[in-house]
Write a protein that binds this DNA or RNA. Structure first.
Lengths: 109, 109
DNA sequence: CTTCTATACCTAGACGGCCAAGGTAAGGGG
DNA sequence: CCCCTTACCTTGGCCGTCTAGGTATAGAAG
């Protein structure tokens, strides 16, 4: 896949997954992979910096937990996070519609 | 609009417009704007470097013409350009489908 | 004549998110 | 003991976009 296309969508994908319930980095990348039928393979170098940005922007809150001797940093969506997610989804649909408009595609967002 | 989303799609949009017939930079940006119903506003700092890249990669060929005292650099799609355009459109649809899969959207590409 | 808008091209430099590649650490199977 | 999986993190490079600037012509407004 063309990784350039990813620009600007990684944060939306993360927020969307976390919106389903508290989860952690490793699981997020797996969920994104599964839900896209293997299309996405979120790299750690994209995933963790993105999580840190989102937390710093207070769109996510985090807490550490340990399961079977493994440290996990769980993330939860904040109120602002939900608002931002809604905005990002709207922006995505507008963008997608714009691209499809130029392509003359019959399907729409 | 979130310009980050644009990454990787500008070249596809340009190729698509040029595929309709020979045209030039200024007109391309207008066409993209119109066909996306005003959503896209291709900046010159993105447009011209992209055109030069595409020409250097031999996906586009160019020739100068003058109309009403105005120099225009016309671009034409090459055979390889058409192939690349097809590939980019397929990649876009796969990407779009992947995103929508994660979003759990009902619409598909 | 000057000024403004539209047309039409170009470029240098900054920005910033993604990726490759590296590191740390624990559990479990071969 | 080694290797794979899980689970986190960071550094540095890459490269396409944008900002902001430049050049030039035509036509309209003042």
């Amino acid at each position: 896949m063309d990784s350039r296309l990813l620009w600007g969508t990684v944060e939306m994908l993360i927020l969307e997954v976390v919106a389903q319930g508290p989860t952690y980095g490793y699981e997020i990348s797996q969920t994104v992979g599964e839900r896209s039928r293997g299309y996405f393979d979120l790299k750690e170098g994209s995933l963790y910096p993105a999580l840190h940005r989102l937390e710093q922007q207070k769109l996510l809150t985090s807490f550490w937990d340990e399961v079977d001797g493994r440290r996990r940093k769980y993330y939860k969506l904040s109120i602002q996070g939900q608002t931002t997610l809604d905005e990002k989804k709207a922006a995505w649909q507008a963008f997608s519609k714009g691209v499809n408009g130029v392509l003359g595609a019959q399907f729409a967002g």
